[in-house]
């Protein structure tokens, strides 16, 4: 039972994991995450790694869109900045991979902050269009620049740590897991202190925030930069994991997929970002598997799978927008609330 929990000091009251049940749940999840790779096959590990990378990117986007209320269609472009920065730093300057990842985050944060400048004047859909322009500019820059190899893919040497190849599925998993945990802790802490609160205030009521002393424009730029830092991290990790970087992984379609992740997972929810990433990574995989299972009985199926995938994808987003705009995070909360009072829930 979670009811009747009181805290005797403000410090305990402000703690991250306030109830014993939550602590147990967290430990279970962590243990499962640690045990998982020892039982998983390579295919499952690949999916898990995709989820880890997508979760970091989704938390990044959620910081900007879900928490601060600034819709961004530039996610794909910002991920590209992270991926290309990391790869090019390694290829051209011989920077160690880990340093290239860190620098890629910083570079993406700066680029993201720059493309946040239109938020001074633009809100809502107009800002979304401005970030779409950012997406197009970045894509165009990558295709045209002599530095990036244009439409040809860049190939990076596998990242090594004490001789261990981190781009191998099993090895990368640990790197991804540690960085995701770090990202989650950072985001959760951020939103219970000054800056994160100001972000949420801007989303809820920007004029009141300004009148209460928040320099709204500065904080919007800060939200763009902070968000882009993690989006850049997910792009850089993708580059190091795949050891191949090509622009077609970072198009407007990527931006829309990430918006879908945070809508389905839950806008303004850190854990929701992860639920959304899991959902959107597994959905196509499950559909593909179902498709190939049916291939023998219904031969036409093979050709239809891509269309079915797109349709299910679109339908899911629409259904979530209509029936559960607060996403999976809300559904999970409702389930918990139901069982908290169980058997007296009705």
């Amino acid at each position: 039972m979670e009811s009747g929990v009181f805290h005797s000091s403000y410090q305990a009251d402000m703690g991250l994991r306030p109830t014993p049940l939550m602590r147990i749940r967290l430990i279970v999840v962590l243990v499962a995450a640690v045990v998982f790779p020892f039982f998983a096959n390579n295919y499952q590990l690949t999916l898990a790694n995709q989820i880890l990378i997508a979760s970091i990117g989704a938390i990044g986007l959620n910081i900007l869109t879900g928490f601060t209320g600034q819709i961004s269609l530039g996610q794909g472009g910002f991920m590209a900045i992270g991926a290309y920065s990391s790869a090019l730093l390694v290829i051209n300057l011989g920077v160690p991979w880990w340093l290239s990842v860190l620098l890629a985050c910083v570079i993406t944060a700066i680029v993201g902050g720059f493309f946040g400048l239109p938020s001074l004047r633009l809100k809502g859909l107009y800002l979304a269009i401005a970030t779409l322009a950012a997406q197009q500019i970045i894509e165009w820059g990558i295709i045209r620049s002599p530095l990036t190899g244009g439409v040809e893919a860049l190939v990076v040497d596998p990242p090594l740590l004490f001789g261990i190849n981190l781009s191998r599925d099993f090895n990368f998993y640990w790197l991804g897991l540690i960085l995701l945990i770090g990202t989650v802790l950072f985001a959760v802490n951020l939103f219970r202190t000054k800056v994160g609160r100001a972000f949420i205030a801007i989303r809820d009521q920007d004029i009141a925030a300004e009148v209460m002393g928040v320099n709204v424009f500065r904080y919007k730029l800060l939200a763009f930069a902070t968000s882009s830092f993690f989006v850049g991290l997910s792009g850089a990790l993708l580059a190091q994991y795949r050891t191949i970087v090509s622009f077609d992984r970072f198009t407007i379609e990527t931006s829309i997929t990430y918006l879908a992740i945070i809508i389905i997972g839950g806008l303004g929810s850190v854990s929701g970002s992860i639920y959304g990433a899991i959902f959107m990574t597994l959905l196509p995989a499950v559909l593909t598997n179902i498709g190939s299972a049916l291939e023998n009985t219904i031969p036409q199926m093979a050709g239809l799978i891509p269309f079915v995938r797109k349709a299910v994808f679109g339908l899911t987003i629409i259904l979530f927008l209509i029936f559960e705009p607060e996403g999976l995070a809300k559904i999970w909360r409702d389930i918990k609330d139901y069982f908290r009072l169980w058997p007296f829930s009705y």
Binding site: F186, A187, N189, L190, R192, T193, K194, V195, G196, T226
Partner: peptide
């Protein structure tokens, strides 16, 4: 309040 993104995020 004085905390920054960094000190806030790292709490």
């Amino acid at each position: 309040l004085k905390s920054s993104v960094f000190s806030g995020g790292l709490f």
